[in-house]
Structures are given as structure tokens and as C-alpha cells.
Nucleic acid binder design. Structure first.
Length: 679
RNA sequence: GCGCCUGUAGCUCAGUUGGAUAGAGCGUCUGGCUACGAACCAGAAGGCCGGGGGUUCGAAUCCCUCCGGGCGCACCA
């Protein structure tokens, strides 16, 4: 509603500017006045025009207000301050419209692909992975809310050095054969022990083992590591078979962990298939024929196929521009005889093997349907209402279509921004500029631990680290908070609260409520920070259920539900037969601005979805949900609905609570959070 | 050395494309449960928005510079 009226207002203003002054502005600023009594929209356009028209801003604003006169949905316009134009919505009309609005289903028709989670299948998921998955999943929900067709992918690097390291641990530290590893997995499964936890410790042990011993011994270990990696890449040997069953077992654990948070995937592309199906060969051909890669014949990269880096500082154009800026003469012999570009990115090594970026380019060509080859597919994991597929060399004949997306989002932490931009530049170099423009590195900062949290967990913390704001987690060192441990702790804490507050409810119901609260807490916690803020993780903050938290928002819904339960009706019923007749007086009353401001905020739903998508920032929605809950709690205290004697006012109050409930539940759903019946 | 991010209340963070008196949570202090549930609400204290300069009618926001913090910059993956 809010967004719709905003567009109507801006459109009208645009046409007035065109006819009256013959002015067209690219983007008209619009905002909300600092206080609700000033109005619902503020236009500072007069300030911008003052110079062009050689008139005082106030004068221009007055002229514009006169031109605006009346506009559908608006009650009045006025000049305020030094030249703002404030617009007031027709409150009673707006309230009726918005009560009927319900959940608007948009259809954009855009086919997008979101890749998130992408944990190396060699250890348990930790809090950093949780941030990734929660951000990605929430963004997927937002895109779907906007009517986009979204495929969710979780990339599995099952042939990389991290998996190799754990395999080294199994084969060389534990001295296990393929069948013994198989037995180990069965035993762990029987005992109800988590294989990803087992790997967490083993991975840390192997990493420490590499660093032990004499230089000769270390060299030998390094050789073992490399040989293992090569066997994984090659496939069809005992070592690669161990890697296969192990990484698959760990992957299943990851999917189970994420399912606890209501996070699902459509497709799991694996690096093993990218290798076996020779995606790279096809990409290499394209890159060579279009001159994106060139064969270096001199310098340190001699014998490699390399690509110029994005925005490389060595290009002649930039140098010239800079020289001009400084009013300096160009050096005599500039570009003419420059040697090899040592800053170029190596894509194919001199021994003929391809680097990670090379494989990534091939994979992204597939994502956009530009490779000319597809994966094989087979079903892998069953969700209650859908199936998750995995890549396979041959696969099944019948399968859904993946890839060939119009736009992609890669949820990958900010440390990977260099390699990500390499891939984008390669696409651009190949002439796929439209695709490059629709390639979004959905980057976010890491989750680190506060020194206090690290000490609490029993890790040894160096003196210097104690003074830092945060310490980076490290899978290699086994340093971090596991995702499942955090969830278990959250459920335990929520359970305690629920048990004491809801003793009369059954155990199953209490368990269910505790889980919902735990999920609400952790998802909100990961979403309340904007993407490029490092989260310094601390149990005290993460386990909080008060203040700006998920449970706070959930609690607001529970309160609203109780009102309707006691009133013997539902929010839907109240809204279905709501008319604003007789409500005008209450909506306009100075001492009841809280009612209108609640409606106004609630009506911003579509504005928020749009904003979150264009900025790729789900935190705005989390903030919105919290503020709406805050508005509702405030309203709840000021107006006692069920004892209200004035029938017309009671109707309005009920409708207000109903709208708040509807919008809170919707916002929470997009955040991946459910609202319990009681808590 | 180069690139990207970042510095806002005691702490953790918001702050739309530059706009009206810079906001929230936590913590501290004070008050509010015989009310639709207090996982709540109200109030108070707490700010040279890292420093300096510039652009602008207007700067936390844009530009320059200095200082502090973080992360990347391999023929590893």
C-alpha cells in the first residue's frame, strides 16, 4: 500500500514538473518526515530546483502544492520547514484498502539461481556456515515473494584439498582401508555419533600432523597430501572411493543440520562432475578463441595461460589518465616495450592443470546456460514437499532442469571477492556482458568469536588475541562453534523458559515451541547485522530472547493471537468485515498517533521486499519486523481492546491488531521464522 | 606495496538515492503486573558520527588527506 501510493505521488509530481517547468529529474527523492504528524511522505524536491529556477525553495514548494491539489488516496499536501512538501494520506481510505490487501502475490517471471551454504564436506558446519545459509535462504524467500523462479544450489567441493586432508587422516593416521572406513561410518551411525563431528577432530589432527616432525618428514607428508589430492581429482581408485563415501556422509549431515533451520536445496552440483564431465575443456575453448586467455611466454608465468586482472593498474589507459591528471609528461618509453604482465591471473598452470578460478569460470558458464553441456542428475535427499537432486556423471533420464538462469547470486564470504570478480571479468571478456551484470557476489563478513567466548569454550587464547575485538574461527585448527551445538544450546535454553511458562501444555507441544523459539533466535541473530559487519559471536548475545531478537517478534504475534482467541474470532475474520466507518476520528486523534503509525509501518511490506532485493540486504526486513513488533507492543499497552466500550473504536483496535499480526507473521515467514501459538 | 571493507552512546549495531531535532538493543538508574501474558511497556542519563580540509542551500552519508581496525592480493585449492 505504502509503496503503491508512493509511486502514484511520484508519478504525479513528475508530470507536474514536466508540464509546468519542463524539467525531468532522473530520481526524485522521497522520504518519511521525522514525525508522523508532519505527514506520511516528504518531498525535498524544491531545494533541488531552487537554483535551476532561481526561486526560493518555499516559493517552489507552494507552487507545487497548488498544482498537486487533490490526488487519489491523499488527503492534503502542505509546505513545511524551509521548503519540504509533506503529503498526508487519507487515513480512513488507506486503512480500508490495506485491510483488504492481504498477501499480494507478485509475478516477475525472472529465473534466478542462488547458491549458498557450500560447505566443504570434510567437517561439521560451524556458525560461519550458519550465517551463509541463513542469509541465502532468507534471500531466496524474498525473491520468491517477489514472484521470481528460484533454484537453490549448494555447491559441493568434494575433490578439494580439505576433503583430501581428512582422507589423509583416515588412511595415514588411522591406517584404515576402504572397507574399514565403511565399517567406521556404520559404527558411528549405530552409536548415534555424528560423522561430521568425528571429521572435525580428525581434520584438526591432520593439520597439526602436517606441521610436526623434521623438515624431511614434513616434506614426505606434503607429498602424501598432494598425491591424495590428485587421486581424488582422478577418481576410480580406493582413495577416491574413501573420499566419496566420507564426503557424502558428511554432506547428508549438513543437509540435516540445515533442515533443522528449515533450509532446503534444489540441486547439489559437485566438483567431481565438473571434472569428470570436462566442463573446463569447453570453457577453455571459448576463452582461447575469444582471446580472454593468452599464453605467456616470458617472466614468472612463462608457460601458463593467463588472464588480465580486472581493473589492473598496468593498463596504458589508466596510466595515461593519471599522468594527465597530474599534468605530467608521459614517460618516454611507456607501453611500447612493457614486459610480461606479471600481475595477470594464472588460469592454466605451466604443467597443464587448471586452477580453481578456471573451473569456476566453466561452472558459471553452465549456470547461465552458456557452456553447451549439462550435468547428469539423480535424486539425493527427500524433503517433506520436494526432492533435492545431486550431480552425477550419467544420472537419470527424467529430471528437473537446472542452470540456464537469467541472474545469479553467490552467497560467499567477502574474503572471496577477488576470485569472484575474476570470474565476472572472464564472462565480460567472453562478451557475456549482460550475464556479468546479473552476476551478484552476495558477499558478507565472517562470524568470528569474541575472546571471551573462545576462553569459555576452553580454547587456549594467545595474549595478543585477548585484546582483540574478535578472533577468526578456523576449521583447520578445529577452532569454532559448531552449528548443531549452538542449536542444541538454544533449544535447551528455550525449553527451560517454555517449561516454566507453559507447565500445563503437553511435552510434545512444549518441545515444538522451544524449537520454534530457538530457530527464531538464531535466524534473527544472523540477519540483524548488515552483511558487511563482522559478527563477533558470543553465547550471551546469541542466546538472548529479549530486546531486538527473534523471540521478541514472535512474542508480539502470540499476544495478538491471544486477543482474538479471547474475543472468539480471528484476525482474518476481523479484516474481512472491516470498514473504517466511524474510525476517522480515532485515526486522526492527536493522542492516538500510535494507531496510525502502526498501520503505516505495516503497509510498507512491499517496499521492504523491493528494497531488500535491490540492495541484496535481508537485514532491512529483520529490522522492519522488529520495529513493527515494537509498534505493536506499544499499541498493546496503550489500548485495552477487549474492554473497550466504544464499539466503533473497538472495531478499529481489533483491525489494527489483526493487521499487525498478519504482517508480523508474513515478515517472519520471509525471515524463515514461524510464530508459535503460545510461548 | 596494491585492492576491498570499516571507524556513530559504556558495549553491540541501524541510519534509504546527501535532507527537518543522529536512532535502536544490551548495560546502568527510576517507575509500571487484581489488565488481551511483564520473553513486555514508560522515563532518565549517555554523542566534536576517528581527526583535519573541501564540495553543497544542506554532509554521519560525496571528494581529498591523515590516524586506527579488518580482510584479500601464489602456477595452494
Amino acid at each position: 500500500m505504502y509503496l503503491k501510493q508512493q509511486r502514484i505521488l511520484l508519478e504525479r509530481l513528475r508530470s507536474i514538473l514536466k508540464t509546468k517547468y519542463d524539467i525531468e529529474l532522473a530520481n526524485l527523492a522521497i522520504e518519511q518526515p521525522p514525525e508522523i504528524r508532519f505527514g506520511d511522505y516528504a518531498l525535498p524536491v524544491a531545494f533541488e530546483l531552487a537554483k535551476r529556477l532561481r526561486k526560493a525553495p518555499r516559493k517552489i514548494a507552494e507552487e507545487l502544492v497548488a498544482e498537486l491539489a487533490t490526488l487519489e488516496g491523499f488527503k492534503s499536501f502542505e509546505v513545511a520547514g524551509a521548503g519540504y512538501i509533506n503529503a498526508h494520506l487519507d487515513r480512513s481510505a488507506a486503512v480500508v484498502v490495506f485491510a483488504e490487501e492481504g498477501t499480494v502475490v507478485l509475478t516477475s517471471g525472472l529465473h534466478v539461481l542462488v547458491e549458498h551454504t557450500s560447505i566443504n564436506p570434510n567437517k561439521a558446519a560451524h556458525v560461519g556456515h550458519l550465517r551463509n545459509a541463513i542469509l541465502g535462504d532468507t534471500f531466496v524467500r524474498l525473491l520468491r515473494a517477489a514472484g521470481q523462479k528460484v533454484d537453490v544450489q549448494n555447491y559441493i567441493d568434494n575433490t578439494g584439498v580439505q576433503v583430501a586432508d581428512v582422507v589423509v587422516g583416515l588412511e595415514h593416521l588411522e591406517q584404515l582401508s576402504y572397507s574399514e572406513v565403511k565399517g567406521l561410518l556404520a559404527v558411528l551411525n549405530e552409536r548415534g555419533e555424528r560423522v561430521d563431528y568425528y571429521c572435525w577432530d580428525l581434520y584438526a589432527r591432520v593439520s597439526a600432523w602436517y606441521d610436526q616432525g623434521s623438515p624431511e618428514e614434513k616434506q614426505t607428508k606434503k607429498q602424501i597430501r598432494l598425491a591424495t589430492l590428485h587421486q581424488l581429482e582422478e577418481g576410480s581408485n580406493e582413495t577416491s572411493e574413501i573420499a566419496k563415501i566420507l564426503s557424502t556422509a558428511v554432506l547428508r549431515r549438513h543437509l540435516e543440520t540445515m533442515l533443522r533451520l528449515d533450509i532446503e536445496y534444489d540441486f547439489l552440483p559437485r566438483e567431481s562432475e565438473i571434472l569428470r564431465l570436462k566442463f573446463w575443456e569447453l570453457a577453455f575453448e571459448q576463452l582461447k578463441t575469444r582471446g580472454v586467455l593468452y599464453h605467456e611466454t616470458e617472466g614468472k608465468n612463462k608457460g601458463c595461460w593467463v588472464m588480465k586482472r580486472a581493473g589492473g593498474s598496468r593498463t596504458g589507459g589508466e596510466r595515461r589518465a593519471r599522468a594527465e591528471e597530474n599534468r605530467q609528461e608521459l614517460p618516454e618509453h611507456d607501453d611500447a616495450e612493457t614486459g610480461p604482465d606479471e600481475d595477470a591471473k594464472v588460469i592454466v598452470r605451466s604443467n597443464g592443470t587448471v586452477t580453481y578460478v578456471g573451473k569456476d569460470i566453466a561452472y558459471h558458464l553452465w549456470k547461465f546456460g552458456l557452456l553447451g553441456r549439462d550435468f547428469g542428475y539423480r535424486p539425493f535427499f527427500k524433503y517433506p514437499d520436494r526432492e533435492c537432486w545431486i550431480s552425477d556423471e550419467t544420472g537419470e533420464k527424467e529430471h528437473p532442469l537446472f542452470g540456464g538462469a537469467q541472474a545469479i547470486y553467490n552467497v560467499i564470504d567477502s574474503r572471496q571477492s577477488d576470485p569472484q570478480s575474476n570470474v565476472i571479468e572472464a564472462l565480460r571478456g567472453l562478451g557475456y556482458t549482460a550475464e556479468a551484470d546479473r552476476y551478484t557476489h552476495f558477499s558478507y563478513e565472517m562470524v568470528a568469536l569474541t575472546p571471551r567466548c573462545a576462553v569459555e569454550l576452553g580454547y587456549e587464547v594467545a595474549e595478543a588475541d585477548l585484546r582483540r575485538a574478535f578472533i577468526e574461527v578456523s576449521g583447520r585448527k578445529g577452532f569454532g562453534v559448531k552449528a548443531d551445538d549452538l542449536l542444541d544450546k538454544l533449544i535447551e535454553a528455550a525449553q527451560k523458559e517454555v517449561d516454566s511458562r507453559q507447565p500445563e501444555r503437553g511435552e510434545d507441544e512444549r518441545n515444538q515451541i522451544a524449537k520454534e523459539i530457538a530457530i527464531g533466535a538464531v535466524r534473527y541473530f544472523m540477519l540483524k547485522y548488515t552483511r558487511n559487519s563482522v559478527i563477533a559471536f558470543d553465547f550471551k548475545d546469541a542466546l538472548s530472547f529479549e530486546g531486538e531478537t527473534g523471540p521478541y517478534v514472535q512474542y508480539a504475534v502470540v499476544r495478538a493471537r491471544n486477543i482474538f482467541r479471547k474475543a472468539g474470532t480471528t484476525a482474518e475474520e476481523v479484516l474481512a468485515d472491516f470498514s473504517a466507518s466511524g474510525a476517522d476520528a480515532y485515526l486522526a486523534a492527536e493522542d492516538a498517533e500510535d494507531i496510525w503509525s502502526l498501520w503505516l509501518r505495516a503497509s510498507k511490506r512491499t517496499l521492504l521486499v523491493e528494497q531488500c532485493i535491490t540492495t541484496a540486504e535481508p537485514a532491512y526486513l529483520a529490522k522492519h519486523a522488529f520495529q513493527l513488533a515494537q509498534d505493536f507492543n506499544n499499541f498493546y499497552h496503550r489500548h485495552h481492546i477487549l474492554t473497550e466500550e466504544d464499539a466503533a473504536k473497538k472495531k478499529l483496535l481489533l483491525a489494527t491488531a489483526a493487521v499487525a499480526q498478519r504482517e508480523l507473521i508474513q515478515a517472519l515467514a520471509w525471515l524463515g521464522i514461524t510464530a508459535p501459538e503460545a510461548m
